[in-house]
Simulated assay, not measured.
Amino acid sequence: MSQSAVSRVWRAFGLKPHRVDTFKISKDPLFVDKVRDVVGLYLDPPAKAVVLCVDEKSQIQALDRSAPVLPMLPGVPERQSFDYIRHGTTSLFAALESTTGQVISAVKRRHRHQEFLAFLRTIDKNVPAGLDVHVVLDNLATHKTPAVKTWLLKHPRLEAPRGALCAR
């Protein structure tokens, strides 16, 4: 079979063998219940509450080009030098309110439970006092330290779906 014949078959059936997606099957016996809790919060948020999807992006390279970027011109793409200067790394903390698209964010030098606690305090300050806060998180170790659990117990308006953050 010729290469062009194979290409025609791939195009006809929308096949892209060079693309690969990955997935992971949870072994958590409560996974379905946890998914229902989280999805339920997003689809039908409680009255007088804010649902925030919280995540961190750590180890962001803080880079700067060694020469000024040359602007795009008609028929000429933007140009930048190939080399760069390292300014270390940083961590971005963000909380997305899915119903409004509002984002509460903070940039921190490190990515430990102390920085996560500081971000929870930022969330607490930025959400109006009359609202409960439902925080949807992954199971990162910094979310489950004794210090974080203790802080959450002292701030009961911040809640997490079952399994997203087991503070209670």
Rank of each mutant, 00 (worst) to 15 (best):
S4K: 15
S7W: 02
W10L: 15
R11D: 15
F13A: 04
G14T: 07
G14R: 15
G14I: 15
H18W: 15
F23I: 08
K24H: 13
K24F: 11
K24W: 10
L30C: 10
D37C: 10
G40Q: 04
Y42E: 01
L43P: 08
D44T: 09
D44C: 13
P46V: 02
L52D: 00
C53H: 08
V54A: 02
E56S: 04
S58H: 06
Q59A: 14
I60N: 06
L63M: 13
S66L: 07
P68R: 02
I85A: 06
G88F: 08
T90S: 05
F93G: 00
A95I: 03
T100D: 10
I104G: 02
A106I: 01
A106E: 00
K108W: 11
H111M: 05
H111N: 13
R112V: 02
L117A: 02
A118F: 14
A118Q: 14
D124C: 06
P128F: 14
A129N: 14
G130Q: 13
D132R: 14
V136P: 01
V136D: 02
D138E: 12
P146H: 12
A147M: 14
H155V: 04
P156V: 11
R157Q: 07
L158D: 01
E159I: 08
A160S: 13
R162M: 10
L165T: 03
A167P: 01
R168M: 09
R168H: 10
